[in-house]
Structure formats: C-alpha cells, structure tokens
Simulated assay, not measured.
Amino acid sequence: MNADQVEAVLARPIAQELLTGPHLVRFAYTGLDGAPRVVPIGFLWNGTQVDIWTVPGSAKVRALAADPRVALTIDTAGMPPRVLLLRGTAELTTIEGIPDGYVEAAPKAVPADQLEQWEAGVRALYDSMVQIRVTPTWATLHDFETTLPRAVQDLLDAKAAAQA
C-alpha cells in the first residue's frame, strides 16, 4: 500500500472520528519470546502519526527495539461496528518528564473524576517516558456501511451472483 492510499483511508470521516475520538487503540507487537502481544492503551493522533507513551523499562520498549513492526486497531462497540486497522513501524524516543500528550490522552483510559489524582501520581512516579510513534504504512477501514472486510464482501458477491 502506498502513502497516498494510506492517506486516503485515514482522511475518511469515520477514520478521523476513530483517530480523534475517545477510543483506546489496541496496540499489537511481537514480544521478545516471539509470541504476539496486544494491549489497549490511550493514544493521540497528531495528523499523520499515532503517539503512545510508556514506562522506559517496559516489556514493550525492549520488544519494539528488537522488532519495531506493529499493528493497531481502533474500534467501536455497537452496531454497525466501525474498525480502523493500521500497520506501521514504531519509533522510540525517550522524553524527560511527563509528555503533554500522555496527559492529553489520559481521558481515553482514566475516568474524569480520577484524572487529577492520576496525573499527580504519574508526575510523582515517572522521571521519563518513552514515546512510541507509529507512522501508518497500511490502513483499512471497515464501517459496515460503505466498507466491509474482504471475506464478507466476497461472500456477499458470491451469494448475489448465485441468485442472478
């Protein structure tokens, strides 16, 4: 998939809603033992990249340093489901202190009535964080109104052809 195709998917209104809304991203990577991992985590979309932050000593950081390939899913509950699937490569940057983006992304995971206490705890605990920045190199959107997973579309097409 080329950059223009990725940009076209990400520019769709439903993709923008998923990227900028209150949803967590499900962040998948390969652990050092070769087994897949996936974690739900808060994030920010900066217009071209997904930014995620974590503790410098986390298993994610060690694993991503060894294999930076990642997959991300942002989705909604309810009908019709809306699902944005992304793939890319993670870039790791250590940042002193608590990044503003980490605090800005917190409401995706922390209840509003706990944000102040959460932020105070984070600021007291962490001296630095690692920013995980993912530039999407592949993207697809399934909104189940205008786009469907390929296997579902193929099944619908086959049924329609059989009835014709």
Rank of each mutant, 00 (worst) to 15 (best):
A8W: 04
V9Y: 03
L10E: 02
A11D: 11
I14D: 03
I14F: 00
Q16C: 05
E17V: 03
E17R: 15
V25A: 15
V25H: 00
F27P: 03
F27N: 10
F27V: 11
A28W: 02
Y29W: 14
G31T: 09
D33M: 08
D33H: 07
G34Y: 04
P36M: 03
R37E: 11
V38H: 01
I41E: 01
I41P: 01
I41M: 14
L44T: 10
W45G: 07
Q49M: 06
V50S: 00
P56V: 12
G57N: 09
A59L: 10
K60G: 02
V61N: 02
A63Q: 02
L64W: 00
A66E: 12
A66L: 06
A71K: 03
I74R: 00
T76Q: 09
T76A: 10
P80N: 05
P81K: 07
R82N: 09
V83M: 09
L85G: 01
A90V: 05
L92G: 09
T94A: 13
T94M: 06
I95R: 13
I95N: 03
I95L: 15
G97P: 02
I98A: 09
I98V: 15
P99L: 13
P99M: 11
D100K: 14
A105V: 10
A106H: 06
P107W: 04
A109D: 10
P111A: 12
D113Y: 04
Q114R: 15
A120V: 08
G121N: 11
A124C: 03
Y126K: 07
S128V: 10
V130R: 11
V130D: 09
Q131S: 14
I132T: 06
V134I: 15
V134T: 08
V134D: 03
P136N: 02
T140H: 03
F144N: 14
T146N: 14
T146P: 00
P149Y: 04
V152E: 12
L155G: 01
D157C: 04
A161L: 13
